[in-house]
């Protein structure tokens, strides 16, 4: 279908207009992050100003930013790895050796995601206190693993099902053990799928803000909780806060952009491809 140049120009204007408006808060924050604190709160708002990178340099000195960043990485990557280790065998079993129960198991796993976190906040909170897992890496990794396990199983399952069965069958005929099939054939073949599953899991953990606010304090708080701690005091540090925020969302924005197509499948449990 050929689009007329005039229509195309109009669409370009409209499309970029919408993109600008939707993206504006992020853009505005990025601008604030390179302003001085005075410029950041100036009225009228300054669009032209002398940019500075001071805020980025100062964040760590003022707020121990690196610690929270490390916590975010350890907790989201840690949970993702544990999740993949648990989920890959299960997804493999269901994708290649389906039984009558497979569909029920998948649906049951999905249904565990439907449990609102707040409904089980109290016992998890108390259990975390009693087991001394409150405000620890281990505690957060356990919670995030369990939170993401159904999604990860689902995504891996849908990627594994796209691997032609014939290849695995040929390997099986040649006497490859299930272990060999899994490690030497299936993993390399479905590596792109596994990568995007891992990225989605990292994105979800990284941005998770219910458990992190309620189950961490000073030691294991990831960036979501750290940023949330700025909700009450109204000091003159918006520029620094903007810089901290931008650093917190930048890696995830990149991950999200890289994997947007596969994300759709994961986010809708395969209902939209």
């Amino acid at each position: 279908m050929k689009t007329k140049p005039r229509d195309k120009a109009l669409m370009t204007l409209l499309g970029w207009g919408v993109a600008f408006i939707v993206f504006f808060p992020v853009l505005w924050m990025a601008l604030a992050s390179v302003k001085t604190e005075l410029d950041a709160v100036a009225t009228p708002p300054k669009i032209l100003f002398r940019p500075t990178l001071e805020n980025y340099a100062e964040i760590n000195q003022r707020a121990d930013y690196l610690k929270f960043f490390t916590n975010s990485i350890v907790e989201s990557v840690g949970a993702t790895l544990v999740c993949l280790l648990l989920a890959a065998p299960a997804a493999y079993a269901m994708a290649f050796f389906p039984t009558r129960k497979t569909k029920d198991i998948l649906m049951w796993m999905l249904s565990t995601k439907m449990m609102p976190a707040v409904g089980v906040l109290v016992p998890i909170y108390i259990l975390a206190i009693q087991t001394h897992l409150l405000d620890t890496w281990a505690g957060m990794i356990i919670v995030y693993t369990l939170m993401n396990l159904p999604i990860v199983v689902w995504m891996l399952y849908s990627f594994f099902r796209e691997v032609p069965k014939e290849i695995l069958e040929a390997a099986r005929m040649d006497g490859a053990t299930p272990r060999q099939q899994l490690l030497e054939l299936l993993l390399p073949l479905s590596l792109p799928g596994i990568m995007s599953t891992a990225l989605l899991s990292i994105i979800i953990c990284w941005n998770e803000a219910f458990w992190s606010i309620n189950l961490t304090a000073s030691k294991a708080a990831p960036l979501t909780a750290f940023i949330a701690s700025f909700s009450s005091p109204e000091g003159l540090f918006w520029a620094k806060l903007s810089a901290a925020s931008l650093l917190a969302i930048a890696p995830i924005l990149v991950f999200g952009w890289l994997t947007q197509k596969q994300l759709v499948r994961g986010l809708t449990f395969g209902a939209v491809k």
């Binding site: 993109a19 939707v22 949330a228 918006w238 947007q260």
Partner: peptide
């Protein structure tokens, strides 16, 4: 890419940007 970006912004950052800057 710009239109889908806000979905990847962590909720606490989104809330603070709107609250403080906008």
């Amino acid at each position: 890419l710009f239109v889908i970006a806000p979905f990847f912004v962590m909720p606490t950052v989104a809330a603070l940007v709107w609250k403080n800057l906008l």
